[in-house]
Design a protein around this nucleic acid. Sequence first.
DNA 1: GTGAAAGCGCTAACAC
DNA 2: GTGTTAGCGCTTTCAC
Lengths: 333, 333
Amino acid sequence: MSKPPSLQDVARAANLSPATVSRYLNGSLALPADTSARIDRAIAELRYQPNPHARSLSRGRSDTIGLVIPEIDNPFFAKLAAAVERRADAAGLALMLCSSLNRKERELHYIERLRRNFVDGLLFATNHVDTGELVRAIGANSNVVIVDEDIDGLVAPKVFSDNREGGRLAAEHLLAHGHRRMAFIGGPQTIMSTRERSAGFREAAIAGGATVAAEYFGSYSIPFGREAARRLIAERGGITALFVASDEILYGVLDVMRESGLSVGDDLSIITYDDAGPLAFLDPPITAVRQPIEEMGRKAFEVLRDRLNGMVDNPVILLPVELIERKSVKNLA
Amino acid sequence: MSKPPSLQDVARAANLSPATVSRYLNGSLALPADTSARIDRAIAELRYQPNPHARSLSRGRSDTIGLVIPEIDNPFFAKLAAAVERRADAAGLALMLCSSLNRKERELHYIERLRRNFVDGLLFATNHVDTGELVRAIGANSNVVIVDEDIDGLVAPKVFSDNREGGRLAAEHLLAHGHRRMAFIGGPQTIMSTRERSAGFREAAIAGGATVAAEYFGSYSIPFGREAARRLIAERGGITALFVASDEILYGVLDVMRESGLSVGDDLSIITYDDAGPLAFLDPPITAVRQPIEEMGRKAFEVLRDRLNGMVDNPVILLPVELIERKSVKNLA
DNA sequence: GTGAAAGCGCTAACAC
DNA sequence: GTGTTAGCGCTTTCAC
């Protein structure tokens, strides 16, 4: 493989200076038809492709953004990544994928990369409680937008789904089906998403004359779903409905219920949160509060673009959720 | 935000030349403790971070690899991406995520990027039949390794799972449970994965005295799963077992079966392929041929590394699959 | 409308 | 061991 052609080569072939060709390529110039034709021909002949590193070095930016998520191997974040990538690509930006594994050092590492303009901006989704480092690291920078989960105390643009409303929707759906004793299984009690979902749920349940007789907090994971389900089954007194705060928790619960010979619906009505997996294909299909994942990705990207274009305010955007009714809630009425 | 410090600044602060600092940073040099201490201090004080673009431009490579997949929003590719990213990260390489949406132009675009060293190498997973462009585009380049699905006629390192063996395993499992009339639903008949899964299945079925009474080819998608299931239900004559070539197809089939009041197991035994989704949580849990996704990612990455380090041969690596027995196959014996 | 020249921040000969 | 000197390929003043 011989050395690829440079701007210089194109300029030479077109009998022009590199500067002219560069300007033409960047559209900052209207050239006479004759000149531009020469350039086009030279480019085609040499199969010229600009070198993005040289370009980035010279311009001080990379036309690349990063997406920091806990783990791509999770349907929710996979869908988020897909949405973001579509938008970024349409805008001519490349997407750097960064799985933090929820580890602080890794998150900080990516923020450092941002500082050194490896990427122009970052979409940041974390899943754990910050002890201050993130706030400090991100605070210094303006091109970060927070998605999905809050970082308390950080001033930055943020895009979330309306978690509280989601909790409310779940409770109201259960109320409408005659349930009066409910339970909730959430993620970490300290993080915003669980706090809000739980609060909205409890709020609406109580307002509707029901009680949330049991609440379990742990993590958004299958094992915790199992654990909480076992406890719920052991302790429950007349609970007829359960709201779980993520699909992973749901899977753990389903597993334990099957083990225990309990039927979803007849023995316990269930609503889950996220609706990122193939819930419609479970038996019974599971009713869920659906997060607007596609739209979160889109919106977050747009906010980041605005930032890159100089926007300075720090909006907190709440996207509407939606209850998808399937077959996992029994009508007691 | 003031301009970030450069190598120059560090050198100045440490009373050295940029070259020395650069060498030290790249480990190509053992410095006297005194000198290196001065550098370390300067770096810490200035909070220096190397500029990756300058580095890439100068060295002619980027320490970044690309992963081209049809769509990240698919559990199989999401898991593959996760595996690749873990390895890449451990090796100090960044990962550029490229969703091709299975479109040729987009695939070619990413290959062009490779040519211009935006990335050092590419892991390439496509899902459609190549009409020659891909072979030509990739053929010119040596830093591409093909994963998951073959590109016919291309000479390059390739990492697949053992699709034929997967088909065989499925048939043998059904045989062992007394099934003698079977059906198969695959993806596009023209692509390697479907060809092989189908061939292995048919081969082993016939060898075991069974017949594959119906075969449907289409695409790895839920809608096609539905379509094929409808036809199967309409046409089937005494078929007791079905092997589907992907999880997506499975979901479509399950949907139609539920609509039709058919029971998985009692009315029709099912084995699926991939095992990337939450199959264990379906009811009944679905028996599957599991692809070694994690290992495919790992292996593909390693082969790419070898390439980047000058390896020149073109191995075709077949990774072993495994049958995960659950509850969707009824014993007829 | 076009060109010359300086630089972006780093690495890699080549010297000493 | 350390410094000097050229680039890497592009963008961007500043001229004309």
